[in-house]
Amino acid sequence: MINLEHIVKRFYVGKPNELEILHGIDLKVYEGEFVSIVGASGSGKTTLMNLIGILDRPTEGEYFLDDVDVCHAPDRELSHIRNKKIGFVFQTYNLISRTSALKNVELPMLYAGIDRKTRRARAKELLQLVDMEERMQHTPDELSGGQKQRVAIARALVNHPAILLADEPTGALDSVTGRKIMDLFHKLHKEQGITIVLITHSNELAEETQRIITLKDGEIIGERKGSISCC
């Protein structure tokens, strides 16, 4: 499903302060896998996630998503692929503060041109899935960190993505709440077969996935099996 070949990412290209963050990354993620990318702060994890999620393009190398060459596709096509295939979950939630949980979840469907009745039904369905049905009319300011993250996960799922990218999704949460979020990821993976890529600095969380990719200083330095079985 995800195939990165010899990926290099530089910033300030051609300038005296040119900075290379990723150095020749080769990575495959197969359909239905639960994979973690683990590394210390500054290892290049978020840069790699932005490339996998087509939020940015590599400086060199090739990236094929479901056999589509996304490195050379026009921006409009990339926007369509991103909206239909990929759901994002961020450490900082990225919710609109003055808008209800329900409307936050509806928002990606609005951009996709889905009618109001369908949007509302789908948003309610997903808020029920993440145990937030009783808080759907509350704004993010009225929710705890764990509740905000549940809303963010519901929003990430609205367009039936094949891939869920989670960037430090428990990093801002206490251990008990973080445990609940990880349990939710396991439920989604097991029951819906979603491909999940978890970006984390925590080796403990990484161990809960099927395959662990270790990133250091912009290079993959190791790969090993996690504690959950494949398929």
Rank of each mutant, 00 (worst) to 15 (best):
residue 186 H to I: 11
residue 173 L to H: 04
residue 177 T to G: 02
residue 191 E to S: 05
residue 181 I to M: 11
residue 183 D to L: 03
residue 164 L to E: 08
residue 175 S to N: 11
residue 183 D to Q: 14
residue 174 D to Y: 13
residue 191 E to Q: 06
residue 175 S to G: 03
residue 168 E to F: 15
residue 173 L to W: 01
residue 177 T to A: 14
residue 165 L to E: 07
residue 181 I to H: 14
residue 176 V to H: 15
residue 171 G to M: 07
residue 163 I to F: 09
residue 184 L to D: 05
residue 171 G to W: 10
residue 166 A to R: 13
residue 167 D to W: 12
residue 175 S to V: 12
residue 169 P to M: 12
residue 182 M to V: 00
residue 188 L to N: 07
residue 190 K to L: 09
residue 182 M to F: 12
residue 167 D to A: 15
residue 190 K to Q: 11
residue 177 T to R: 06
residue 188 L to K: 02
residue 166 A to S: 13
residue 167 D to Y: 07
residue 187 K to M: 08
residue 173 L to M: 06
residue 181 I to Y: 13
residue 184 L to K: 03
residue 191 E to Y: 11
residue 163 I to G: 09
residue 188 L to H: 15
residue 186 H to W: 00
residue 179 R to P: 04
residue 186 H to E: 08
residue 171 G to P: 14
residue 174 D to W: 15
residue 169 P to N: 03
residue 171 G to H: 01
residue 162 A to G: 15
residue 165 L to M: 10
residue 187 K to L: 13
residue 186 H to R: 01
residue 186 H to K: 06
residue 189 H to Q: 10
residue 163 I to E: 04
residue 162 A to W: 01
residue 184 L to E: 03
residue 163 I to Q: 00
residue 182 M to S: 02
residue 180 K to F: 03
residue 190 K to G: 07
residue 185 F to S: 04
residue 172 A to K: 13
residue 168 E to S: 02
residue 179 R to I: 00
residue 169 P to S: 11
residue 171 G to S: 12
residue 183 D to A: 09
residue 167 D to F: 04
residue 175 S to I: 12
residue 181 I to L: 04
residue 188 L to I: 11
residue 187 K to R: 15
residue 164 L to H: 03
residue 191 E to I: 09
residue 167 D to L: 08
residue 176 V to I: 14
residue 176 V to L: 13
residue 177 T to P: 00
residue 188 L to R: 04
residue 163 I to A: 00
residue 176 V to R: 15
residue 183 D to F: 12
residue 181 I to Q: 05
residue 178 G to K: 05
residue 171 G to R: 04
residue 182 M to K: 12
residue 164 L to S: 00
residue 164 L to G: 12
residue 186 H to V: 03
residue 178 G to S: 07
residue 169 P to R: 14
residue 182 M to L: 06
residue 190 K to P: 15
residue 190 K to R: 12
residue 191 E to N: 05
residue 180 K to C: 11
residue 171 G to V: 00
residue 185 F to M: 10
residue 168 E to M: 13
residue 178 G to M: 01
residue 162 A to I: 06
residue 188 L to Y: 01
residue 184 L to F: 07
residue 173 L to G: 10
residue 167 D to R: 12
residue 189 H to T: 05
residue 167 D to I: 06
residue 170 T to V: 02
residue 190 K to E: 11
residue 179 R to K: 15
residue 164 L to I: 02
residue 186 H to F: 12
residue 163 I to M: 03
residue 173 L to V: 05
residue 186 H to N: 14
residue 183 D to Y: 13
residue 163 I to P: 08
residue 169 P to F: 08
residue 184 L to P: 13
residue 189 H to K: 08
residue 180 K to Y: 07
residue 169 P to E: 07
residue 190 K to F: 01
residue 164 L to N: 09
residue 179 R to E: 13
residue 168 E to Q: 04
residue 166 A to Q: 11
residue 172 A to F: 02
residue 191 E to W: 13
residue 178 G to P: 05
residue 168 E to R: 07
residue 166 A to F: 14
residue 191 E to V: 06
residue 165 L to P: 03
residue 162 A to F: 04
residue 184 L to Y: 00
residue 190 K to W: 10
residue 162 A to N: 15
residue 185 F to Y: 05
residue 186 H to M: 11
residue 179 R to F: 13
residue 184 L to N: 02
residue 163 I to K: 04
residue 168 E to D: 15
residue 178 G to R: 01
residue 181 I to K: 11
residue 167 D to V: 00
residue 167 D to G: 09
residue 180 K to I: 12
residue 162 A to C: 15
residue 182 M to H: 09
residue 182 M to Q: 05
residue 186 H to T: 02
residue 169 P to D: 06
residue 181 I to S: 06
